[in-house]
């Protein structure tokens, strides 16, 4: 099973942004998707660094793709999206608008924010040129199995959300701006101080969600430590790891070791608990009654 690093959903300082990809050049991952997923207003801050990052990663033998925005509405965003297909780098579509810009016959990959729930959609996208599809994070194991089989028959690599705060929703409204009494158009980059998102708790103080500009994520970090074997048996060919602060390359190495049998079930979670004290994990979308559940709950306490 290969490892893919998804686009960084958060707004990081330019130096931190470059630092992530410098570190990933020597991390045990096969594919890296970069570029702006969440908010087009963030892009100018690090856009000039993208070509160098791509070059570094490609020189290190990594497969590289650039992500589209998750929600394309403004004229400027449509232009930006149309230009993305001209970069010569594989495009990961995270909004179906991209199908309007991709020339017929050009291969592309499909990110987790595109709704691929069934074989019909998968087959249609495969015929259109999709070579790799990361399934929506809310999909339970049973449909994942069915789609992995369908993907194998069609020659499409099937990827599953393996690690990181789960993208749960995208909106026209910026919640970070709203929290600061501003509107999206005058946000003053309220999200820049929350490089892992801003914690949102219930009225009882229970950690629940994380705010990231126009995006809402889970508070918990998805962790597929307990599902590695069943995902392999299901025919899932790639696991997606989503960036977070700290030594993210080391997190990638944990998953690599776990897949290669160098560490045992439970050891990714244990290492995460040690390195990020208080981190809450979940794997409920794959195997639980709801997304927030964690099958290693005893290890967490």
């Amino acid at each position: 099973m290969q490892l893919t690093v998804g686009p960084n959903p958060f707004f990081w300082k330019p130096e931190a942004w470059s630092g992530l990809y410098d570190a990933l050049a020597s991390a045990p991952v096969q594919r890296i998707v970069l570029g702006e997923l969440v908010c087009s207003k963030r892009l100018p801050f690090y856009q000039d660094r993208i070509p160098a990052a791509i070059e570094t990663l490609q020189a290190a033998g990594k497969g590289v793709a650039v992500s589209s925005l998750a929600l394309i509405t403004l004229k400027r965003e449509r232009k930006l999206s149309a230009e993305l297909v001209e970069t010569g780098v594989e495009v990961e579509i995270n909004d179906l608008s991209m199908l309007a810009y991709l020339p017929q016959g050009m291969a592309f990959s499909v990110g987790p924010l595109v709704n691929v729930y069934n074989e019909g959609t998968l087959a249609w996208l495969a015929a259109r040129g999709a070579t790799s599809i990361c399934l929506p994070p809310e999909l339970p194991l049973e449909p994942v199995r069915t789609l992995a089989r369908a993907g194998r028959d069609l020659g499409v690599a099937i990827e599953v959300w393996g690690h990181g705060r789960v993208p749960l929703a995208i909106s026209g409204r910026c919640y970070h701006a709203r929290l600061h009494g501003r509107t999206k158009d005058n946000c003053q980059f309220a999200c820049e101080n929350d490089p892992d998102g801003l914690d949102v708790a219930t009225l009882d103080g229970q950690d629940f969600l994380a705010m990231n500009g126009v995006q809402t994520l889970s508070d918990s970090f998805a962790c597929s430590d307990h599902q590695i074997e069943i995902l392999q048996e299901a025919g899932v060919s790639r696991l997606r790891l989503s960036p977070q602060t700290g030594d993210f390359a080391a997190i990638c190495a944990l998953y690599r070791d776990r897949i290669d049998g160098k560490i045992k079930r439970g050891q990714i979670a244990a290492a995460l608990q040690t390195r990020y004290p208080g981190i809450r994990l979940s794997d409920g979308f794959l195997t639980g009654a709801c997304g927030a559940e964690w099958s290693g709950a005893s290890a967490q306490s």
Binding site: N115, Y117, S171, F285
Partner: peptide, 21 residues
């Protein structure tokens, strides 16, 4: 809906039941 419709998993995260599925 405050979120882009058809692209929201808040409900399944908390309850296992989602608009999409």
């Amino acid at each position: 809906c405050v979120m882009a419709e058809g692209r929201c998993s808040l409900s399944s995260y908390a309850t296992g039941q989602s608009p999409n599925m």
